[in-house]
């Protein structure tokens, strides 16, 4: 080890290279190459805004002036390219265009579309296919912003919630508790046994999207079984203790589900709306020239 460090002191050794690679691997895509794409996006926006203010657009600024067409073309190109991230990330290939660089550009150029798209509209908004495309674009960007925020903030809490257990282990633990519950509940009377059956039979992943996102499960059979079994006999105490363990295990799983749902939910808006946006853009561009 010491010799490796020594050999790497010059900066050309394999260790140094590896360290650099490892360092760069741990730089967030937001900070990629010293915020390169942030600066590019800011420059693009600055140029677009300066052009909007300085160029005399007759009869009034909107998508129909030459500057409006220019902004529209840039915007359309960006949107199509940004939507190709989904294709790019499925192609594992080497090259200068790393996925991280691509993602970084995706985020910052996507944000720059707020300025480019708005200037393209010339602040003319209405109930039409053109504004539909604009609003869809803004929604896609808004969900994207949400996505970036949760990707930065939530993985830490997801990790903390796991407490060094994998998802499979959480399910195994629940299975272990369930098997014990099954045998422990043998001495119970009918009513209590039914409560245990209901608790065991309930799908851990049930409850729907809303329950996942809020972490609130009002119909939780384990909780109602805990309430229902209040007897003092040893068997009942044992079942109650096991149900308490089950509830805790469920809480961990459900907290994991909640964080994961918050991490993933934006994609269920971002992706379909992106495709809808591309359709609306097609309608926008074709209709504008159809009724020129």
């Amino acid at each position: 080890m010491a010799s490796r460090v020594k050999s790497g002191a010059g900066g050309t050794g394999r260790f140094t290279q590896d360290e650099q690679r490892r360092d760069s691997d741990h730089v967030s895509f937001l900070k990629h190459k010293g915020f390169r794409w942030l600066w590019i996006a800011l420059a693009l926006n600055g140029a677009a805004a300066a052009g909007y203010l300085m160029i005399d657009q007759q009869p009034r600024p909107n998508g129909g002036t030459w500057y409006g067409y220019t902004l529209g073309t840039i915007g359309l190109g960006l949107i199509v390219w940004l939507s190709l991230l989904g294709v790019r990330k499925r192609r594992i290939n080497p090259g200068a265009w790393s996925l991280k660089a691509w993602t970084s550009a995706h985020v910052y150029l996507g944000l720059s579309l707020i300025v480019i798209g708005t200037l393209h509209t010339g602040f003319q908004i209405g109930w039409n296919v053109h504004t539909l495309a604009y609003v869809l674009m803004l929604l896609v960007i808004a969900t994207g912003i949400y996505g970036v925020v949760v990707y930065v903030r939530l993985p830490a809490s997801l990790s903390a919630n796991r407490r060094e257990m994998t998802r499979a282990q959480m399910l195994d633990a629940l299975g272990a508790i369930d098997r014990q519950l099954e045998s422990a509940a043998q001495p119970l009377a009918r009513a209590e046994a039914d409560l245990v059956i209901a608790a065991l039979g309930q799908d851990v992943f049930g409850g729907g999207a809303l329950a996942r996102l809020t972490g609130s499960y009002p119909g939780c059979a384990t909780a109602s079984a805990l309430k229902g079994i209040g007897g003092t006999s040893e068997a009942e105490a044992r079942v109650a203790a096991l149900l308490e363990k089950r509830r805790e295990q469920l809480a961990q799983i459900r907290e994991g589900l909640r964080i994961r749902a918050l991490l993933e939910v934006w994609l269920f808006v971002h992706i379909p709306l992106t495709i809808a946006l591309i359709a609306a853009l097609a309608a926008h561009v074709i209709s504008v020239f159809y009724y020129w």
């Binding site: 998802r167 799908d203 851990v204 992943f205 409850g207 729907g208 999207a209 996942r212 994991g256 589900l257 994961r260 749902a261 993933e264 939910v265 994609l267 269920f268 992706i271 379909p272 709306l273 992106t274 495709i275 809808a276 591309i278 359709a279």
Partner: peptide
């Protein structure tokens, strides 16, 4: 089941629907 996709309609179906 841990993925949100298990309780939401598929992104692909929604995309086709909207578009």
């Amino acid at each position: 089941g841990f993925a949100l996709a298990s309780v939401l309609p598929s992104k692909r179906a929604m995309s086709w629907g909207f578009a």
